[in-house]
């Protein structure tokens, strides 16, 4: 079957994108125990930041613009935590309140981006052709290869960070029990700040890569976020492996699903996967 390699490639590409979103989302959930719906907006913000740089400083090095975009997304996430979530945590707000607040934040960021950059579709590559590689019968572009590589590298890197570094240990301590971590002397607010920075930065990278691959639109954040949420829950909220596994499963189910069922049902397929897991295995593939 000649399209099988292409379908597999498409699934891996989608999985890579979703993984980048899910990894950050999962990390934030592990540390703060709330579903940060504004996460999707971090991806959009990162993508548009890079776009802004590329538009304003013609001839700027692409990698530099991307790096700055990632940095911007990370800082934005950190700032949001500082300004909004930390305040709410101080008032002992329930997780649902944080969820609703994050929904509000998401809406604002998306609207502001749409106001500044218009709702029109933009591409980061500016129309420059992407080199295409033929791998095992499937056509994959350079951007897509980078996406998969980045997802793998970051997943591995995150795993290492959590296991080997001091910050990683602190994050795990906070994830296990925030109260106990405080008692032990860990500055939990600082750790959470780092978590938001790293998580949002990864999402920003995802947004930038999607911008190169298919393009940017202010509304892209919602669909990326929803995919990230599905991947996280399906894979197992709060674990790095969970985010990766969930993203992989989602990517494959979506793309092979389209093959059998028509393309327009993509969203329904993705959410049906979520519902199936919520009913039969709510803890996801990898338990915490």
């Amino acid at each position: 079957m000649s399209i099988l390699p292409q379908l597999i490639a498409n699934s891996l590409i989608a999985a890579g994108t979703y993984a980048l979103i899910a990894l950050g989302f999962n990390l934030i959930y592990a540390a703060t125990k709330f579903f940060n719906l504004a996460h999707g907006a971090m991806a959009t913000a990162g993508g548009y930041a890079a776009f802004f740089l590329l538009q304003s400083f013609v001839g700027i090095n692409v990698v530099l613009a991307a790096a700055l975009g990632v940095l911007f997304a990370g800082l934005l996430g950190w700032a949001l935590d500082r300004a909004v979530y930390r305040e709410l945590r101080k008032r002992k707000a329930s997780n649902t309140v944080l969820l609703v607040a994050s929904l509000g934040v998401f809406t604002v960021i998306q609207a502001v981006i749409a106001m500044i950059f218009t709702s029109q579709f933009q591409t980061l590559s500016g129309g420059a052709a992407d080199s295409v590689y033929q791998i095992g019968g499937a056509a994959v572009t350079e951007t897509q290869v980078i996406m998969i590589a980045a997802a793998v590298a970051i997943a591995a890197g995150l795993g290492l960070l959590l296991k080997k570094t001091l910050l990683g240990k602190e994050v795990r301590a906070v994830s296990d029990d925030e109260e106990v971590a405080k008692i032990v002397g860990i500055n939990t607010e600082r750790v959470i700040g780092w978590v938001f920075f790293i998580g949002s930065a990864i999402a920003g990278l995802g947004g930038i890569l999607v911008g190169f691959d298919t393009g940017l639109q202010p509304t892209m954040g919602m669909s990326l976020l929803l995919r990230g949420v599905i991947a996280s829950i399906v894979g197992g909220v709060g674990t790095v492996y969970g985010a990766a596994a969930g993203a992989l499963l989602l990517g494959f189910v979506e793309n092979f699903g389209i093959w059998k069922i028509s393309g327009e049902w993509k969203d329904a397929i993705a959410f049906s996967l979520l519902i199936v897991f919520l009913v039969f295995r709510p803890q996801g593939i990898f338990k915490r």
Binding site: M1, W259, G263
Partner: peptide
């Protein structure tokens, strides 16, 4: 025919299916 909704940006799987 593979219809798609207006805000779709990723046509690869649709195109792959049609091509097959």
């Amino acid at each position: 025919n593979q219809p798609f909704s207006s805000n779709t940006n990723d046509f690869r799987s649709i195109l792959t299916t049609l091509r097959s």
